[in-house]
């Protein structure tokens, strides 16, 4: 269980997180949504001890992130950050292998290699395994980073906008794989998404953040309503029922009344 208790954070004089209380039980997929600058990445970074806590506490299975040894935490929790920096000149296989570092310390065992092969396979990277990371497309690189995070083999996986740069096929494929991971291996997955429909389709719970606070929290059925989405995003989002699935139609469409996108 990830337990976040009255966490606040001020950055450059600006309140970025405001007394966040959140408890994420083990298992399942939780989607974190909300406008740009809402504090989603900041919250994940705090949970993954990449930023120091200023106020409040965060524990992972009872282990406080602020005082647990880095190595112990690295086996419990893996994070994919929104921005992973310039790619090093290493092969895809090597990069995914770095995910095993908390277990192998660099000396890969047969088990580590097996896990890497499995990660490559799961995210359809086997054909790219020998390619150098700095010669891949943005989406291919993103999938490598996801595979590396997965290879870490932790119970908790935090993914900050993993669908960035992914095409329709791979975005769908990733969500399916995450669902399988959660269902078959009991991993706890927290995923930041901007595509609310992906969140509604795959997540068990959607948490919306706005201005450093939790704006809404509930099952997809509860969140996928025009008035709830409007409170989060500031414009009326039409929600339709499509084959038993709630679908938000946030798109700008030509030939439709413009008032959809801007209230009066």
């Amino acid at each position: 269980m990830i337990e976040i208790k009255s966490v606040s954070l001020v950055r450059e004089g600006q309140r970025v997180l405001d007394a966040i209380d959140l408890s994420l039980p083990k298992g399942g997929i939780t989607a974190l949504v909300g406008p740009n600058g809402a504090g989603k990445s900041t919250l994940l970074s705090l949970a993954a001890r990449l930023l120091p806590l200023q106020a409040g506490s965060i524990t992972i299975d009872g282990l406080p992130v602020s005082s647990t040894p880095g190595k112990v935490l690295a086996r419990k929790l893996a994070i994919l950050r929104q921005d992973s920096g310039p790619p090093p000149r290493v092969s895809v296989r090597e990069m995914v292998g770095f995910g095993r570092f908390p277990h192998s310390g660099g000396r890969m065992t047969a088990e580590d290699r097996e896990m890497v092969a499995q990660a490559l396979d799961r995210f359809e990277l086997t054909d790219l395994a020998s390619r150098s990371l700095d010669r891949l497309s943005g989406g291919q690189r993103q999938r490598v980073m996801v595979a590396m995070t997965y290879a870490q083999g932790s119970d908790y996986i935090l993914l900050d906008e993993p669908l960035n740069n992914l095409d329709m096929y791979h975005a769908r494929k990733l969500m399916i794989e995450l669902r399988r991971l959660a269902d078959e291996t009991g991993r706890t997955i927290v995923i930041v998404l901007h595509d609310i429909n992906h969140a509604a389709a795959s997540a068990d719970r959607i948490i919306a953040m706005k201005d450093g606070r939790i704006a809404a929290d509930g099952t997809p059925e509860k969140i996928m309503r025009t008035e709830v989405l409007e409170a989060i995003y500031g414009f009326p989002v039409e929600v339709v029922d499509a084959g038993g699935m709630r679908l938000a139609l946030q798109y700008a469409r030509s030939g439709q009344p413009r008032d959809q996108a801007r209230p009066s």
Binding site: S45, A48, R49, L50, G70, K71, V72, L73, A74, R75, A78, I79, R81, S84, G85, P88, V90, F98, G99, F101, P102, G105, G106, R107, Q152
Partner: peptide, 20 residues
């Protein structure tokens, strides 16, 4: 060497992989 390679991925990535 392995730790230095991980380090080159940046402080955040290295920290999340458990490197001091």
């Amino acid at each position: 060497a392995d730790r230095l390679t991980i380090m080159a991925l940046g402080e955040a990535q290295a920290t999340s992989l458990g490197l001091d």
